[in-house]
Amino acid sequence: MNFTLLINEGPYQHQASDTAYQFAKAALEKGHEIYRVFFYNDGVNNATRLAIPPQDDRNITENWAALAKEHELDMVVCIAAAQRRGMLDADEAGRQGKDADNIHPAFRISGLGQLVEGGIQADRLLTFGD
């Protein structure tokens, strides 16, 4: 079975991203597939490559990136929600004339249609939010 996960809250502020991560890990361990992980609302902040959590704490973005690398996960950040919150990849920063970008290369930026398509294509869509 395959799942699309929708994550609507930022890292550390809320447990949503942690819960989704643990769920994804358990699902993959059981042989299920993750069709897509879609980051929306403040959830786009999970994609920052610039976070420096204390050394005794988990690194949520790197955890997602490692899981994505191991299982070739499609991790999509909503472009509209990301732009609102100052989350840009290098292409977008160039296009918008900004002097920096902050999105981790394990994530890609795309439109909201990717969420709807994720709901259509996956067997289940789960929302993790507040």
Binding site: Y40, N41, A80, A81, G111, L112, G113, L115, V116, E117, I120
Partner: peptide
């Protein structure tokens, strides 16, 4: 932001 998803969903 939910309404933005709703409007996009109409295209599908």
């Amino acid at each position: 932001e939910s309404l933005e998803v709703v409007l996009i969903s109409a295209a599908f």
